[in-house]
Simulated assay, not measured.
Amino acid sequence: MKKDIHGLDVSRLLGRKPVIISKLYGASDYIRGQVVLITGAGGSIGSELALQVALHQPGKLLLLGHGENSIFSVDLILKDRFPDVPVESLIVDIQDELQLRDVFQRYKPQIVFHAAAHKHVPLMERNRIAAIQNNIWGTQNVATIAKQSGARKFIFISTDKAVYPANVMGATKRVSEMIIQQLSENSATQFAVVRFGNVLESRGSVIPIFKKQLARGGPLTVSHPDMVRYFMSIPEAVHLVLQAGSLSKGGELFILDMGEPIQIVELARALIREAGLEPDKDIAIQFIGIRPGEKVKESLTYDEERIAPSANPHISVIQPMPLNTDILSRNLKQLAKLTPQDADRAMQLLLRIIANNADDLSDGNESAE
């Protein structure tokens, strides 16, 4: 029997039990009574962060985002579910340094979760400068001002696409990881990076697309028959981000236990069956080819990164690779000279920054001058 597509329990598609611990040890200790700022608070991760942070009784919750409708929606939900939690909704572009400084001066946030990002891979391949401005310079703005303002903790949300990046989005996130690593040196603010893979039902991700295609009667479109991805549900990803925040002492890169990677075509078949239909009979699956910037398989770590367990069995700690901060600073100054006319060179420049070797961007970079 065909089921309501919008009411499907997609967490069952993970093929494992979601990672939810009955008690978030330490989370309440570092959140309760504190002013907590969430950037990208209108997004899939940011909005769930807001809801889970509210459970731990922050002194004030700051919802920062660029899109008024999404921030307004989260604000309404929070005020309905958590009327005792003071909430401020702030429409601010993270690229606007003056606006950000005003937010930190006015509200003095002690805990910052930085979830704001341009994340859609093919779209960012066509809008490379926008990805750099938002993901790199926006992150640098928020993190630098948080450090200068004396924030206690700063947790940056990264992605598996930052590992051996094949696209501009992933490359900008890896450069941002490096900026956080640089800022964490000799810092009173405890900086941490949390890296994880795809999130089920996040806005613009594969499950919402599949659901729309399913509602139309198919076909469900898949890039490549061998395409695999790591998946988590939105609540479990955010749950572990909060736990990583309690574990952080500063300078860590955490990765979350995402189970085994899942074949996208099998995910499509499972969703069709969950709807009470038969794959390839009631609903067709069509392979459309790999999109710009896509990889067949993602990885959560670089080969050179050393992984160690944490106090939480579902979270591992990566010892960051050595970073020459002088070279990074020089290269970032060169990247800042990139103009829209140089967009075709963006990926090349980003990969040279990621390499972080003595052959910095000042060599042969006249067109960016």
Rank of each mutant, 00 (worst) to 15 (best):
L350N: 01
P165H: 00
I91V: 10
N141H: 15
L76G: 05
M227H: 15
D102K: 09
V87H: 01
G276H: 12
F104I: 11
I290F: 10
F254W: 00
D280L: 04
G46I: 01
L361F: 04
I145V: 15
R291A: 15
Q286I: 03
A50M: 12
I77H: 02
Y230I: 03
A358H: 10
G217N: 15
E278K: 15
Y30K: 05
S176G: 08
D75M: 11
I94K: 03
I155M: 03
I132R: 00
N198M: 11
P208L: 02
K212H: 07
A116F: 08
V238E: 03
I180W: 00
A41E: 04
I155D: 00
M124G: 12
T139L: 15
T339G: 10
A237N: 05
H120F: 12
L8Y: 01
N331H: 03
I354A: 03
I318M: 14
I255T: 14
K108V: 11
Q243I: 13
I285R: 02
L24S: 10
S47T: 02
E260N: 15
R273Q: 15
F113R: 04
Q263H: 12
R101L: 12
R345K: 13
K60S: 06
V36G: 06
Q57I: 06
Q190W: 00
F287S: 09
M232N: 09
P122N: 05
E68M: 08
Q95V: 09
W137D: 07
Y25H: 12
E88T: 08
A270D: 12
I91L: 14
S28L: 14
R269Q: 14
P340V: 06
L98Y: 12
D80L: 06
A215C: 08
I264D: 04
V85A: 05
F210D: 00
V222Q: 00
K249P: 04
I354K: 08
Q105T: 10
T339I: 06
L14I: 12
E185A: 11
D363E: 08
A336L: 09
R229L: 14
Q348V: 11
R291Q: 10
I272T: 06
A146D: 03
N127H: 15
P279D: 00
A188Y: 13
I132M: 08
D257F: 02
F191Q: 09
L300E: 04
S184F: 01
F254I: 03
Y107Q: 05
G250K: 00
E97K: 12
V112H: 06
G204S: 11
A162N: 02
A162Q: 01
A117D: 04
R106Y: 05
Q181A: 13
G217W: 10
A336E: 07
P18E: 13
K173M: 14
L90M: 09
G251S: 05
N312Y: 04
I145E: 08
A166F: 05
Y107C: 05
Q140I: 12
Y302C: 07
A117V: 06
A244F: 05
S329N: 15
D360I: 04
E236G: 01
G59M: 07
I38V: 13
T325P: 02
I209W: 07
M227R: 14
S176Q: 03
T172N: 12
I255F: 04
F104A: 07
